[in-house]
Design a protein around this nucleic acid. Structure first.
Lengths: 329, 329
DNA sequence: CCATGAAATGTGAGCGCTCACATTCTGCGG
DNA sequence: CCGCAGAATGTGAGCGCTCACATTTCATGG
């Protein structure tokens, strides 16, 4: 592997002139520049980012920590962020972890910091992850994608509360008065926000608030709860905290002969690619994860410039109306 | 940020002794070691992997290139690989790209090589990606997750051909004689392998091979093709090249009043988490992406040791029987 | 109590680059 | 044709670490 000195020798200039060409500095004569570029091409030379990082103390790398299972939301966010980072000229090093406990988090952070990442991005699903990282002194900026809205963090999120309000309002507007909620797991921040939004909208309208059912995001949990639900009545609509559980519900209800939306309306959350082709197609809340990824990067760039972002950045989700919701019988 | 000299000074030893402690060398007296470790803790010192990489010429980093859309298969593979790499003590730097053209590929490779990745892993969906990277001289080992089985590559895959055979055989065993195929897009290697497997199994049994229908992996394409299909007859089963398109089919067929599996049996491919709760639950081919990820890393470690892996590594998928398939009427 | 070799520790160079500064070239007016 | 400012290029140090080798320390036997 050729280095800068090899290039310099071949081009008949000093290493510093090569460095100037590499960094697009303008005090190089066109003739010289061309000679250097020819040498670079001939030697198939690639400047070492490692060496550069050592002296400049900048790596143009950010660490991405994502925890837990590869659910649709978090993975889409990670992907969106990765793309945004690339466009901003940053590399991304990932440190995934199965569990968000303090020890794993310390490990992940340690690896990233040794790599001299300039910032850390945490895509946090659970409260645990946030708490774990808040107890760690990083020394570099941290931006989190998390919806709990807790203070002292640069956080970016899609407004889960608002999404749940939209879903619930849609059902209420259709005339439903008893609207159940199938919540996500207790450790999930998004789940809590969605439950809050549902509750708030019901209360605002003076509708009855029942104890939410609780699943674990999986279609299986939706199915199991659906099996129990099919035998009950006293409600005409369900707001499911995600599309996968809604799918499980649809499956159980279909088995039990409960018709959707005639007997029961269902709203999901996420708008996964499959949702438009559930039977019936699922009314749901769409989140723009690509935009979330861009927002994370944008916040990061601001924070890296030393400017403190006071306000958490939030974007609005929107309601996608499909056939799984209708007026009550 | 403290460096090795700071630690050495505080511990009252030379920088080299600190280095020995860091690298767990055994020629350090316990007393000295403890003194050094205390200094490390006190200064919250983290050795710079950048500086270490510069001198050792090893980064313990591998580059991961993945192209195209974030489909279920590739993202699951990426995740599995990432986890396996972490366990093997390697960092992963990602270089995602929207299109797999030669220019983007050169870009991605360039960034990774400047970072001094020790190897590159390509998770390739399309022929284009493979062709693009084959034209690039990397200088580091390359392992690809790709199913075309072309020579000259260290490749790892789940046997798509075999999976398609399993799916087709299942339908044939049930008594179906006219088995259609809804293929994935022409540029996809997996799609081609699945079509080959379907064709081969039909020919082996002397069954009619019709021109496959072609979708683009999306539920929408499955739906559109399903709408047309619902008006035709002369077939009793469809092997869909992925679960999402199968979902679209189910949706269209349900709308048209075609009953699955009574009127038509359907098999998918992938076993996405939703498949068990389609209506009806989808018989499909399950792939173990976590294992694929581990296989990639295992192959990588072998290749990094300078041993050439002659044989492509392949694992077998398996058939998951559910309610969407049954004997023909 | 000293020589001796092994164990423990220290020294200096250098990985490939950029930074700050020094030096050498240009072209131009006098 | 010389001097000079400004442009172009060169020089040497040093980022934080490891490597190869040099030196010191320690325990042991004679």
């Amino acid at each position: 592997m050729a280095n800068i000195t090899d290039v310099a020798r071949l081009a008949g200039v000093s290493h510093q002139t090569v460095s100037r060409v590499l960094n697009n500095q303008d005090t190089v004569r066109p003739v010289t520049r061309e000679r250097v570029q020819a040498a670079i091409a001939e030697l198939n030379y690639r400047p070492s980012l490692v060496a550069r990082a050592l002296v400049t103390r900048r790596t143009r790398t950010v660490g991405l920590i994502s925890t837990g299972n590869p659910l649709y939301g978090p993975s889409s966010t990670a992907l969106g962020f990765n793309e945004a980072a690339r466009q901003a000229g940053y590399q991304v090093t990932i440190a995934s972890m199965a569990t968000a406990d303090r020890a794993s988090m310390l490990d992940a952070v340690d690896v990233l910091l040794r790599q001299h990442v300039e910032a850390v991005v945490l895509i946090a699903a659970d409260y645990e992850a946030i708490e774990a990282i808040q107890g760690i002194s990083l020394g570099v900026p941290l931006v989190t994608a998390e919806s709990s809205g807790r203070p002292g963090l640069h956080s970016v999120s899609i407004d889960q509360f608002r999404g749940a309000e939209l879903a619930t309002a849609h059902l209420a507007d259709l005339g439903h008065r008893d609207i159940l909620h199938l919540a996500g797991p207790a450790e999930s921040m998004d789940a809590a926000e969605r439950t809050r939004g549902w509750r708030s909208e019901l209360e605002r309208r003076g509708l009855a608030v029942r104890e939410p059912l609780v699943g674990d995001w999986s279609p299986e949990s939706g199915y199991e709860i659906g099996v129990g639900l099919a035998r009950e009545n006293g409600f005409s609509a369900i707001f499911s905290a995600n599309d996968q559980m809604a799918l499980g519900l649809l499956h159980a209800l279909s088995n039990a002969g409960v018709r959707v939306p005639q007997d029961l309306s269902i709203v999901g959350f996420d708008d996964i690619p499959e949702a438009a082709h559930f039977i019936p197609p699922l009314t749901t809340i769409r989140q723009d994860f690509a935009e979330l990824g861009r927002d994370i990067m944008a916040t990061l760039l601001v924070v890296l410039d030393g400017i403190d972002v006071a306000e958490p950045v939030q974007t609005e989700p929107r309601l996608i109306m499909r056939a799984s919701t209708g007026a009550p019988a």
